[in-house]
């Protein structure tokens, strides 16, 4: 367990305090002092337990990735709405295995989260110990089991575009997790 640097402790306490002021909305001294004491206590209690040290360059790249993800969300929302409103209900749900070579847990988590956030695809499993027999081919911790509502929704997964985008985010980053 790596202790967190004191700068980060102050940063975290300040962030908690800002959230407190934002949500309480009152500026009298009793609220401010109470909030300050509580934010430092919470930050201090958590200080020894989190290996998380912020990597601002990586977070910046993740923020640059978000607009692309949002565009995808809009596209697939419109596609899914068309499917639902179509009187014939032309859905063709399927489970598919998506192999990845990302090799880091943070990247796989970001990918699984993006998949679930996009309407039409949901990450069902990441680690493969409890996968249905038909799909559990070999033990591969980086494979994702995805439920997709039709072939178009799964397009970016089968073509590997999503994985390429996420690999770009994590390229040249020191490995921490």
């Amino acid at each position: 367990m790596r202790p967190v640097s004191s700068e980060f402790l102050v940063l975290k306490a300040t962030a908690l305090f800002v959230l407190w002021v934002l949500l309480s909305g009152s500026f009298d001294w009793i609220h401010l002092v109470l909030g300050g004491v509580l934010s430092f206590t919470v930050a201090w209690l958590n200080s020894g337990h989190s290996p998380f040290v912020p990597n601002f360059r990586l977070w910046g790249k993740i923020f640059l990735y978000l607009p692309w993800l949002f565009l995808k969300i809009v596209q697939s929302s419109l596609h899914l709405s068309k499917l639902i409103l179509n009187p014939a209900l032309p859905i063709d749900p399927r489970l598919l295995r998506v192999e990845t070579n990302l090799g880091r847990r943070a990247a796989v988590v970001l990918m699984g989260n993006s998949i679930t956030l996009t309407p039409g695809t949901i990450t069902a499993e990441i680690d493969h110990d409890v996968v249905p027999e038909a799909l559990a081919a070999e033990a591969d911790p980086d494979a994702l089991l995805v439920h997709a509502i039709d072939e178009t929704s799964a397009g970016d997964l089968t073509s590997g575009r999503l994985e390429a985008k996420i690999a770009e985010v994590f390229k040249n980053e020191e490995r921490r997790w």
Binding site: V74, T116, L117, T118, P119, G120, T121, I122
Partner: peptide, 10 residues
Amino acid sequence: AHAVSLTDSL
């Protein structure tokens, strides 16, 4: 669940 995720995303 796909339909529900339409609610929260867009």
